[in-house]
Each structure stands twice: as C-alpha cells, then as structure tokens.
Simulated scan of single mutants.
Amino acid sequence: MNTQSTLHASVPVKSLLNNDNALYRKRSKINKVMLTLSSITLVFGLFWLFWIILTLLLKGGASLSFTLFTEITPGPGDSGGLANAILGSVLMSAVGTIIGTPIGIMAGTYLAEYGSRGWLAPATRFLNDVLLSAPSIIIGLFIYSLYVSNVGHYSGWAGALALSILVIPVVVRTTDNMLLLVPNSLREAAAALGCPKWRIVTMICYRAARSGIITGILLAVARIMGETAPLLFTALSNQFMSWNMNAPMANLPVVIYQYAASPFKDWNELAWAGATLITLLVLGLNILARSLFRK
C-alpha cells in the first residue's frame, strides 16, 4: 500500500489529465454526454414552465385590474371581480397555516431532538411521508366525513381544517431536516454550561434552523393556496362577500374551477385572471422561500 501510494504521488497530475490517457478520455466523454443530457432536460423543463406562465399572462393578464380586488364575483353577463374569492382564500389559508404550523413544528422537533431511540420516530416519519404524498381529495373527503357531515353544512372552518392537514406534513419534514442539520457541538456546548434541553431547543436549535423552518412554512402556504379538491368537499363556494367562517365561503381555486368550465366568456376571463393571480402568488412565495433558504 505504501509503495503504490508513493508511485501515485510521484506521477504529476497534469500527465494524467490529457488525451493520451485512455481513462481520462473515457471519463471526459461520459462527462460531456451527461452534461448535454442535463442541459437538454433543464431546457425542456424550463420551456414548459415559461410556456405556462406566458399563456397565463397572455390570457389572464388583461383581466388583472383594480376591480378584480374590489368587486365580488358577478352573474352571467355582468362585470365584477374576485374580491370575495380572494378574501375566502386568504382567510382559510391563514387559519389553516395557524392551525397546522405549530403542530408541524412540534412534531418535527420531537423527531429531530427527542426521537433518536425507539420505534415511534421512524414510524412517524413514515406516516408523515405517506400523508405528504396523499392526494388532497382524500383529505377533503376525510374532513367531509368527520366534520361537514356531522354539522350538516359546508363552512370555511371545514376548508381551513382540510388545508391545515396539508400544511402539517410539509412543516414536519422541513423542521425535522433543518434541526438535524444543526451541529451537535452547539447542543453539547450549551449542555456543558448547564442549559436545560428545552432551552437548548428553543434558544439555539430554533435560531440556527430558523431560515429553513420559515422556508417550509412558506412552501406549505404556496401548496395550499392552489388546492381545489379539498375545498370542494368542505368550503364549497359563495357568490357573496362573507366573513362568516361557519358558512360556505368563496375561494379562488373553486371559483376558477367553476368559471373555467362555464360557457360564459366573462366568467372564462375571470377564471384566467384568478389562475394568473394564484400562479404569480405561488411563484413569489417559492422565490421568497428559496431566497431565505440560501441565507
């Protein structure tokens, strides 16, 4: 072993990195092929992304006006906006985030800080991954059977509960991963100074993983803003401006679904405008999340 190491060390690196070396030529060709394939797939994905965004801007950009945020959804042939749908989406998304975020952070904290032993943490991670990939319509049916069918009516609370269940697995996964990235040396140094475990988690680990946890919350909000299926079975919709969370509530995804399938041109234009608005909002939240994660 020492003789081989000495021989390799005595060979200049530049003599190995030239076309006369068969191994170098082989690896260079493989590298070029893989770079070419990677570039092609990158361009392919970006092409469809820009096409979708361009289509939305061309068909819905003209309908993005001040009245879109000030007037409620109109009847056929009338002018109007999406103010009630925007309000409903904001309210239900905010309540869903408020309900789901603390649960997700606490569950992720347990997995990362207290679940190093035993079977509970691995089982929870597995179930969380299942919930993370579960179709959102199943969540809507679950809340319908658990809440809507018992109270006898659709409501904004039911929609917020469905959205909160979609928030939880995203926040759990992000919190767990970010806390695991915090060096153990920080925990050990605090423990050596007599700091209790709960204070180590809240004052050191949370601060070190703050940007990553916030990123997970923003990604969860971006996900629930465009969910339609859960709200069809829980909040349904409402043609009027309403702050009552205990009644059917308008929301952008369901309004877009209804108006896009209608035969009325003005409703189709509002559907394109709503789709453009949601896409720009989700895109902005993802960019913000990525920016925070880089820091």
Rank of each mutant, 00 (worst) to 15 (best):
N251W: 10
A192R: 07
G77P: 03
N177F: 04
L91Y: 12
G140V: 12
I72H: 02
P253C: 08
N150T: 14
R25M: 14
A189K: 04
A162I: 01
A260G: 01
Y206H: 11
F47Y: 14
L231K: 01
D129E: 10
V172E: 02
G81N: 01
S262R: 09
F69I: 10
I53D: 00
I204E: 07
K26M: 10
P263C: 08
A275S: 11
S145Q: 11
S38W: 07
H153F: 13
L193V: 07
T3R: 09
P102D: 02
S116N: 15
R207I: 12
G108E: 01
V43R: 03
L49R: 00
I224Q: 03
R223A: 13
I72W: 01
E269L: 15
S10Q: 11
F50S: 01
A160H: 07
P76S: 06
I224D: 03
I256K: 04
A222M: 12
K197Q: 07
I287R: 12
T276I: 01
Y110E: 12
N177K: 09
L180G: 06
N128Y: 01
W272D: 06
G96Y: 09
A235M: 07
A222E: 12
R125S: 09
E113F: 10
P230Q: 06
R25S: 14
K26V: 13
G274A: 04
A62M: 03
V254L: 10
G80H: 03
K197L: 04
A260Y: 10
H153D: 06
T228C: 12
N238G: 02
R199C: 00
S155M: 08
Y24G: 07
N128K: 02
L181F: 04
S145H: 09
G212T: 05
G81V: 04
R207E: 08
I30L: 14
M34C: 00
A275M: 06
L56M: 10
C195F: 10
P102N: 05
R223F: 13
T215Y: 08
L193S: 13
I40V: 15
F233S: 07
K197V: 09
V33N: 00
V43A: 15
M178S: 10
S145Y: 13
